[in-house]
Design a binder for these strands. Structure first.
Lengths: 121, 121
DNA sequence: GTAGAAGCTGACACTGGTGTCAGATTCAAG
DNA sequence: CTTGAATCTGACACCAGTGTCAGCTTCTAC
């Protein structure tokens, strides 16, 4: 499929899709004229990438992580190296910390909202 | 107290403290020579600010939110305006979404880690 | 009064994914 | 063949908090 369709189906801009490719996160065949031609599986892959970006991982981590994830049908095509496991464990700890931060702030917001509205909505 | 002490006690750089002041988040008296002189309460305030930054709120939101928070001893010195309540409600929703994103990614990381180490540690 | 530590302001850089624009090329349908 | 839509590459800008440096002033203790 072409980049325009992929962008629409994943709700990710063409700009970002090209960026992902440059970062090695996404692969596309090329037409004789040089236009990108994505396999159907690219849709899932982009969704995964977005998921990990949303959690604050950087491209460099994601590019290593992706081959170790099991995709929809098959199992993982690679096993994480011990070094990568360390990295991912750190990331997981960071995520835990961030969730804690968010929930603490959420509590504060909630107090202010409740105090102002008088309701516990 | 002087900026150096506040920086040390809050583990926030002097650079950031000056930035907070410029954003209207933090107030300091001045010595005759122009050096900042913080009240004891600044410590708590900086902690609050960090908490909210950690949750992704921007200065503009925090500066409005701060006077509506109850500090350690007293109650809130101001009540949030309806408009602010709307803003904060949006922020709360954003936080909820972000927590969901983080937990989803955490699950993925966990799978990869588990698959590679074989243990559920 | 003097030396050294601490503070002041202002400016520039960085991050890293994304928006956007320009100018050229390719694709697909009439 | 032609034409308009789609795609290509490359470059520059942005955000917003923080790091860092330069050059000068103030404070503090001797």
């Amino acid at each position: 499929m072409r980049i325009g369709e992929l962008a629409e189906r994943t709700a990710v801009s063409e700009r970002s899709l090209r960026y992902y490719e440059k970062q090695g996160l996404l692969y596309a065949d090329r037409t004789p004229g040089g236009h990108r031609d994505y396999p159907e599986s690219a849709v899932d892959r982009v969704v995964h990438i977005q998921e990990l970006f949303a959690a604050g991982l950087c491209s460099a981590k994601i590019v290593q992580l992706l081959p170790c994830m099991r995709d929809k049908d098959g199992g993982p095509s690679e096993k994480a190296t011990p070094w990568l496991v360390d990295e991912l464990t750190d990331e997981r700890a960071r995520i835990d910390r961030q969730v804690a931060d968010l929930l603490r702030a959420r509590e504060v917001l909630n107090e202010v909202i409740t105090a102002a509205t008088g309701t516990s909505r």
